[in-house]
Simulated scan of single mutants.
Amino acid sequence: MKFNRHHPIIEDLIEFGKRRDIDVVFSNELHPETPDIVNVEQRLVIINLNSVLADILPFRMSHEFGHILEQAVNHNLWSTFENYDSNNPDERIANTAGINILLYLHFGNGGQFNYIDFMNMYGLPAWTETKVKEQMKMYLI
Score class of each variant (00 low, 15 high):
residue 2 K to T: 03
residue 2 K to N: 10
residue 3 F to Q: 04
residue 4 N to Y: 04
residue 5 R to E: 15
residue 5 R to L: 15
residue 5 R to M: 09
residue 5 R to S: 07
residue 5 R to D: 04
residue 6 H to R: 10
residue 6 H to A: 10
residue 6 H to V: 15
residue 7 H to F: 13
residue 7 H to D: 08
residue 8 P to F: 05
residue 8 P to Q: 02
residue 10 I to A: 10
residue 11 E to H: 10
residue 11 E to L: 13
residue 13 L to V: 14
residue 13 L to P: 13
residue 13 L to I: 09
residue 15 E to T: 11
residue 15 E to S: 12
residue 18 K to S: 14
residue 19 R to Q: 10
residue 19 R to M: 10
residue 20 R to W: 10
residue 20 R to K: 11
residue 20 R to L: 15
residue 22 I to P: 06
residue 24 V to T: 06
residue 25 V to Y: 01
residue 25 V to R: 04
residue 25 V to I: 15
residue 25 V to E: 05
residue 26 F to K: 04
residue 28 N to E: 15
residue 31 H to M: 09
residue 33 E to K: 13
residue 33 E to D: 09
residue 34 T to V: 05
residue 36 D to C: 11
residue 37 I to G: 03
residue 39 N to C: 15
residue 39 N to M: 05
residue 40 V to A: 13
residue 41 E to C: 12
residue 42 Q to I: 06
residue 43 R to G: 09
residue 44 L to S: 03
residue 45 V to I: 09
residue 46 I to S: 09
residue 47 I to H: 01
residue 49 L to S: 12
residue 52 V to W: 06
residue 53 L to T: 08
residue 54 A to F: 14
residue 54 A to H: 14
residue 54 A to C: 05
residue 55 D to K: 10
residue 56 I to P: 05
residue 57 L to Q: 00
residue 57 L to S: 02
residue 57 L to T: 04
residue 57 L to Y: 00
residue 57 L to C: 00
residue 60 R to A: 06
residue 60 R to G: 06
residue 61 M to A: 00
residue 61 M to K: 02
residue 63 H to K: 02
residue 63 H to I: 07
residue 64 E to N: 01
residue 64 E to D: 04
residue 65 F to Q: 11
residue 66 G to Y: 04
residue 66 G to I: 05
residue 67 H to G: 03
residue 67 H to P: 02
residue 70 E to R: 12
residue 75 H to E: 14
residue 76 N to R: 06
residue 76 N to P: 01
residue 78 W to R: 08
residue 78 W to Q: 15
residue 79 S to L: 15
residue 79 S to W: 11
residue 80 T to N: 12
residue 81 F to Y: 12
residue 81 F to S: 12
residue 81 F to H: 15
residue 82 E to L: 10
residue 82 E to R: 09
residue 82 E to H: 08
residue 83 N to W: 13
residue 84 Y to F: 08
residue 87 N to Y: 11
residue 88 N to D: 14
residue 88 N to L: 06
residue 91 E to Y: 15
residue 92 R to D: 13
residue 93 I to F: 15
residue 94 A to W: 14
residue 94 A to V: 09
residue 98 G to R: 03
residue 99 I to Q: 03
residue 99 I to M: 02
residue 100 N to P: 02
residue 101 I to D: 09
residue 102 L to S: 06
residue 102 L to Q: 07
residue 103 L to R: 06
residue 103 L to F: 08
residue 104 Y to P: 01
residue 104 Y to G: 02
residue 104 Y to L: 12
residue 105 L to G: 06
residue 106 H to T: 11
residue 106 H to D: 05
residue 106 H to E: 08
residue 109 N to L: 07
residue 111 G to M: 02
residue 113 F to P: 00
residue 114 N to T: 00
residue 114 N to A: 01
residue 115 Y to P: 00
residue 115 Y to A: 01
residue 116 I to N: 07
residue 117 D to W: 02
residue 117 D to V: 08
residue 117 D to M: 01
residue 117 D to Q: 08
residue 118 F to I: 08
residue 120 N to R: 10
residue 120 N to C: 02
residue 123 G to V: 01
residue 125 P to W: 03
residue 125 P to N: 04
residue 126 A to E: 15
residue 127 W to S: 06
residue 127 W to C: 11
residue 128 T to K: 12
residue 132 V to H: 04
residue 133 K to A: 03
residue 134 E to Q: 08
residue 136 M to A: 06
residue 138 M to K: 07
residue 138 M to L: 14
residue 139 Y to A: 10
residue 140 L to Q: 05
residue 140 L to N: 04
residue 140 L to P: 02
residue 141 I to T: 07
residue 141 I to R: 11
